[in-house]
Amino acid sequence: MSVDAVSVSGLSKTFRVPDGKGGHIRHMAVDQVTFAVEAGGSLGIVGESGSGKTTIARMLVGLERASGGSMTVLGRDRSTPTRRAVERNRRARELQIVFQDPYTSLDPSQSARAAVDEVLRHHAKLTAGQRPTRTAALMEQVGLTERQADARPRDLSGGQRQRVAIARALAAEPRVLILDEAVSALDVSIQAQIVNLLADIRAATGMAYLLISHDLAVVRQLCDAVLVLRRGKVVEQGSCGQVLDAPVEDYTRRLRAAVPVPGWRPGS
């Protein structure tokens, strides 16, 4: 059996927050979370706002230091953030992340092509002559036209920007991709396009996905397994069909009931 793409065990994160009386209280944002994503698999993490989903993602990429527990990606430990350039570069090739807001996650002065080229320059073993070909291929893969590739983020729509962010993440050729609410900021029709694009990419590359979302429909479409998080704790975990169709936990049922369905009327 091959190593898991992501393996997290007993992961915790405590924040010191002001208690309003001049002191501090400890807030457990993530509490003893354990899960694994098998190689090429895809896991959705769902939960309401503040349930600790994004904190898990930030710890996995090294933007946040874990208070306890361990994390491995492709069997290599990354429980603590690294300051070493070589290790950071290696970790980047294992795992990349696409964030929720494509308006802040792109450099406003950098065109899509420049953003992708920059990543290629530091990761892929390509010569200066080969890079444009690879960039063009990535642009085509995410469905950006030549003109859009040369445009700055402010001249692109939200969906197009998210395609740029995805292309930039793919440029490092990671084996695992974290999608942190990556389609939540987009309107519904664009959301569907990006979800399809992500499904295609996964089929083509065999990349493992860790999808963080509050949208159960998106999780159902992209993931095999799902983990329900509430106030930093795992409430329920299992295959998508099992958890989402026949939830055992009351919280999961309420999450499911909160999704508007055809025929739904506010207040009914």
């Binding site: 807001d101 792109l106 450099d107 990543v119």
Partner: peptide, 22 residues
């Protein structure tokens, strides 16, 4: 503090490149 700067290190870019270019 920009998100794209904070995450540039996650993309494996060297620190000085992030400082200079972004």
């Amino acid at each position: 503090e920009r998100e794209h700067v904070q995450t540039a290190l996650v993309r494996g870019l060297p620190r000085w490149v992030v400082l200079r270019d972004h």
